[in-house]
Amino acid sequence: MFAFSEQAEKEIEKILNKYPEKHKQSALLPLLTLTQRQEGHVSPDAMREIARRLDVSPAYVQSVASFYTMYTLGDTPVGKYTILFCINISCQLNGCDELLDYTAKKLNIQVGETTADKKFTLRREECLAACTGGPMMRVNDTYHENITPARIDQILDSLK
């Protein structure tokens, strides 16, 4: 069964205050984000709960959630650290493809997978708005720009 944490409940109160009472559906993305961050994924149970709170159908929640790439729908959580690796034009011009391969090899997974110890999830990502610092990757909420193999080693090794 899914439940929001106590901390999340406080957040929810704040979130709901942002939107007009009649339009609490606006809180859908924020609640999904809360869930994703709390659980590492968004389960059907969670979607049902969000639907109940916002007075929409669970199918609607899934419809919206599945449109966006930052939610992991289903029952399998992402790793403790999600590495989003920008592969778009500016980064590509600066060699991101090789670095992505390098990272995948280092973690011993395919792009899109999670390491066996559930620590890292590696994803190919479209432009993350750090084009002048490409190649770049985002590890959870932190941007790392101008990365090199050595920087990648250093960053990943420093993560506990």
Partner: peptide, 20 residues
């Protein structure tokens, strides 16, 4: 008006479906 049948996913992967 019960939004039971919805579009799932995005773009080329769009598909008609239901909750779960």
């Amino acid at each position: 008006q019960d939004r039971a049948l919805v579009m799932l996913n995005r773009g080329f992967h769009n598909e008609v479906g239901t909750f779960n």
